[in-house]
Design a protein around this nucleic acid. Structure first.
Length: 307
DNA sequence: AAGACGAAAGTGGTTGA
DNA sequence: TCAACAACTTTCGTCTT
């Protein structure tokens, strides 16, 4: 059974949760929200009311996930079609009362989350991000909404910012350019909201490591694994003499990759490397110059040129 | 002809008064 | 809030392969 226990109320955050096992209901004692484990796949959506002999039909379904707009929790009091299943006047009244109340408590927050998480999924799959990152982003977004940080910002930009932050936390960084392309939000806007929400939510993000970019860039350039590890090696040496701090990580990664490609005799042009890394040739050149100078790689590069 | 290189001017963001 | 500043980009001319 995949039923998951609720720890706090998704509406008000209160920990004072009361479960009525018999009714299969959970109620927040602080705000009165009726919470229900809703884990039924849409393909087999059905509802039961008390007079339907519920004991014989218990629900099963997917586990709660932060990517579900209400973590798979939350309430829904049927649709109009359910109305016809109801017998007595009293039950109808009850039905409408519940439904009305429920609609009222589905605040803007929940509605917002529903749309936002759909968008988040879209962008995330576009970038082929792992599930863990998607969920992390969803958590961040949820927190942002609850703190009212979305006000004055477009929902999409906050989604993009949350995803960007999640990527970095999971050490699978995407560049702002990629995020921008996937989400259709301007780069600077993403950067702004990203900084804003990480600051406000105190989400700590390690400064991104250039080496994290290597595998992706390398495969985009169809470079051998050897070249890849060479590039990482170069990056480590560069870091030891503080060549990496203060510079854009993508530029450094690109330069290291460029050097590695030379040394390993699978040369790529600066243009090619620059394109996949989303920097210009000039930046690669600058980093590259520093690298071969400070790391005394000149000889190695020269040698492999002659081959 | 294409790639590599470098200079100069421009852009957007950070920092510190 | 503004100016100085560093990193990076854009553009363009020159050199090398």
């Amino acid at each position: 059974m995949l039923r998951k226990t609720l720890k706090e109320c998704p509406e008000c955050g209160s920990k004072d949760i009361f479960r009525n096992v018999e009714k299969g209901e959970t109620v927040c004692r602080t705000c009165g929200l009726v919470i229900e484990d809703r884990m039924v796949d849409f393909s087999q959506e059905w509802r039961e009311f008390e007079d339907e002999g519920g004991a014989s039909k218990r629900r099963t379904g997917a586990p709660a996930s932060p990517t579900q707009f209400d973590q798979g929790l939350g309430t829904e009091v049927g649709t109009v079609s359910d109305f016809y299943k109801l017998g007595s006047e009293r039950e109808r009244d009850r039905f409408f009362r519940l439904r009305k109340w429920n609609i009222r408590i589905s605040t803007a927050i929940e509605r917002n989350l529903k749309v936002a998480l759909a968008e988040l999924k879209r962008v995330s799959s576009f970038l082929k991000l792992p599930k863990s990152v998607e969920e992390e982003a969803a958590r961040i977004y949820r927190a942002a909404v609850q703190k009212g940080l979305v006000r004055g910002r477009s929902m999409e930009s906050v989604v993009a910012g949350a995803l960007y932050a999640a990527c970095r936390r999971h050490e699978v960084p995407r560049t702002l350019d990629e995020m921008s392309e996937a989400s259709g939000i301007e780069k600077k806007e993403i950067g702004r909201t990203y900084r804003f929400i990480t600051r406000e939510l105190e989400v700590t993000v390690k400064p991104s490591n250039p080496a994290d970019y290597i595998p992706r860039f390398a495969s985009a350039l169809k470079l051998a694994a050897e070249t890849q590890s060479k590039a990482v090696e170069i990056l480590e040496m560069a870091r030891d003499i503080e060549l990496t701090s203060g510079r854009g990580p993508t530029g450094i990664a690109a330069a290291a990759l460029y050097v590695a490609s030379l040394v390993h005799g699978e040369k790529r042009t600066q243009r090619e490397v620059a394109d996949v890394a989303g920097v210009t040739e000039v930046t690669i050149r600058n980093r590259y110059k520093e690298l071969i100078k400070r790391l005394k790689l000149t000889k190695q590069v020269e040698k492999s040129k002659k081959k």
